[in-house]
Design a protein around this nucleic acid. Structure first.
Lengths: 219, 219
DNA sequence: TCAGCAAGCTAGCGCCTGCTATCTTGGTAG
DNA sequence: CTACCAAGATAGCAGGCGCTAGCTTGCTGA
């Protein structure tokens, strides 16, 4: 499972290593429980017993239950920012539209499918949900969205894309992918298992060419 | 505000009318608070004082805090089912694709924009979020989605739409609209105010024709 | 004018929560 | 073998929660 790779122990010394491992275990279990029962629906007693330690151990890693929550969200935001930044740097102007959109789409979809519990935590945890979502959006996705929008704008000026509002185009492109991610993992609706790149390829094709057959064949 | 029209008093007698009004007020306030602070983050004391009544009055309308929550969700599901059913009946085979998709799209978008607090409640309330979402999806949108998918399937057989998986097409059509609804109201991201039918018209156009310019002009 | 009564508020019960003071234990140096 | 000490579990505190018993109020009809 990919989730196990998250929350690694930061090695500061030989002594602290075991402690770091436990800290990571606490964080992982907390993501699971908060996503399942919500922040307030999860008691520190439950969390401690699920991790397999006593309650005071929790408080020797995190001053407050809320601090634990903040640590999780910070980790998520940092990780997502990093992923999105990397994908933006990786993309260069040399690729054609299909390749570029494919790369962007796969990044977005992967983020949704990577660890459903984290996404569910973000949406369902019930701790001032909208503030959190705003913060999240502000810090992690603003740049990425601006990047997509500016790309759309450039291609409109080139005459390669039709003249819509760039933000509308961003939504039209991101929408199906995000919706797929939410429906298939967050809402746990059964959808046929398919490779990610294939799913994205279809959405990219539809975005570029539309649902109606075209007269002349495109690549 | 449209929200005020919801949770109307069911008139069973002259005596009960005032009581029904208060019941409606409780439900409306509860939606607001649950959406804001979550289910467990809202105390019955807070709710009572926000409504302007004492706590026991709450319990004379709803046996349990959880019952109150269930009543809200039931109301949402019933209302949405009704809306979607009506829109499905309204649509007949005579319309062309653009008109039909426009009608469907407006129904979906209106549902998202109608009362953001209700949507936020569904996502953020934090009471076994995923179970609720599953229930919600099962009862309110399954038929609608099946309807859209079967429409897509028919048009593929007609040769009017390209040969994709019908469910992929459903997602590609619903995705941008749902994403717009979530981003603009639920996550409170500032987007330029625009008339709903115009927004939907652009998404429908993009869905049908794609982002690339076409050789022969369509309607 | 005043008994009768429905309807509402005050005050509080028992439970559970986040958090912690205190005791216990197991490993190590001399 | 024993004195020491860090690290962890037990048990419990103070406060807040969902929920309610019982008192108070103000309206109704004779």
């Amino acid at each position: 499972m990919l989730a196990d790779a998250n929350f690694e122990t930061p090695v500061v010394g030989k002594q602290r290593l075991r402690s770091g491992e436990r800290r990571a275990a606490i964080l992982r279990t907390a993501v699971e429980l908060f996503a399942q029962r919500g922040f307030r629906g999860t008691t520190t007693r439950e969390l401690a017993s699920a991790v397999g330690v006593s309650e005071p151990v929790l408080y020797q890693h995190f001053a407050t239950k809320r601090d634990l929550y903040t640590a999780i969200v910070d980790h998520m935001v940092a990780q997502a920012s990093q992923t999105f930044d990397a994908s933006m740097r990786q993309v260069d102007g040399g690729q054609d539209d299909r390749e570029l959109l494919q790369a962007l789409g796969e990044v977005i979809l992967s983020w949704y499918l990577q660890d459903p519990a984290q996404i569910r935590l973000l949406l369902f945890s019930g701790l001032e949900g909208h503030e959190l979502a705003e913060l999240w959006h502000e810090r992690a996705t603003t740049q990425f969205k601006a990047f997509v929008a500016s790309y759309m704008e450039r291609r409109i000026k080139d005459g390669a894309f039709r003249g819509f509002d760039p933000h509308t185009l961003s939504l039209a492109f991101v929408g199906p992918i995000a919706h797929y991610g939410l429906v298939s993992t967050v809402f746990r609706c059964p959808l046929p298992e398919r490779p990610r790149n294939e799913i994205v390829r279809e959405f990219v094709d539809l975005f570029l060419n539309g649902i109606r057959p075209r007269a002349e064949g495109d690549l």
